[in-house]
């Protein structure tokens, strides 16, 4: 077992624990047990819990910017669909961080600040995507000023909170349903051209 994989294993075990317990209540002993190594060994890799939390969030932000970078890699509607898939995977993996957000805000303000920045970018991307669809003629022009800003917020809320609230309701976090719910926000605004493209390229994959 080389260093990299042990470190990776520790981080993955921490994510599992954070998903079901408060970040504040997880102790190093638990992380060591979950990883299957001794506390001493754990301390060799991370000097304290802060270091682990920081590393977990470092990974989290890394993955998030990975998703952000897939914005408009192709002009088609499927581009958003692919991004949604990635968001879904992300929010399923890191269920905890939304729940512990306020704890994080108190104890790790730097992390909170970066997270807010990510959110800002995510919102902007959704908003600009709508503009782009309007320019391409697959989305109706904004019916009244501010409508698409509101729509952006609704889509965002769905993408970010859908997984945790499904977990809360003890329902499956199925990807198709997730995408269905998110697309349902946009679909009423499609032009006929947009509708046919949607029916052709996206709908076959989200109607199971």
């Amino acid at each position: 077992m080389n260093n990299l994989t042990t470190k990776q294993k520790i981080l993955e075990a921490s994510i599992r624990l954070f998903n079901w317990n408060d970040v504040a209540n997880v102790r190093l002993q638990q992380i060591a047990d979950e990883t299957g190594i001794s506390v001493g060994n754990l301390a060799y890799h991370f000097k304290n819990k802060e270091a682990i939390v920081s590393a977990v969030y470092e990974n989290l932000f890394e993955e998030f910017s990975q998703i952000l970078s897939t914005y408009l890699t192709s002009p088609k509607l499927t581009d958003f669909d692919v991004q949604m898939e990635q968001y879904h995977r992300f929010f399923s993996k890191y269920k905890f961080y939304l729940i512990d957000l306020f704890e994080i805000e108190r104890s790790y303000p730097v992390i909170m600040e970066r997270w807010r920045e990510c959110i800002g970018k995510m919102l902007l991307q959704i908003r600009k995507r709508l503009d782009y669809y309007v320019n391409r003629g697959i989305l109706q022009p904004e019916p009244a000023p501010g409508v698409y800003d509101t729509l952006t917020n609704s889509i965002w809320t769905t993408i970010v909170f859908w997984v945790p609230q499904q977990v809360l309701k003890d329902k499956p976090v199925d990807e198709t349903v997730f995408k269905q719910t998110a697309w349902a926000h946009i679909s009423p605004y499609f032009t006929p051209k947009g509708l046919s493209e949607f029916a052709l390229e996206v709908q076959p994959f989200i109607l199971s």
């Binding site: 920081s54 969030y57 470092e58 932000f61 914005y71 408009l72 002009p75 730097v110 992390i111 970066r114 920045e117 800002g120 970018k121 902007l124 991307q125 600009k128 995507r129 503009d131 782009y132 320019n135 391409r136």
Partner: peptide
């Protein structure tokens, strides 16, 4: 944690605009 690179939201918005323009120009 090391300070991450960040850019002001207005600049980011402009960048996204240019990106979506690419598909037309």
């Amino acid at each position: 944690m090391k300070r991450a690179f960040s850019m002001p939201p207005e600049l980011y918005a402009k960048m996204l605009d240019e990106l979506s323009n690419l598909f037309f120009t």
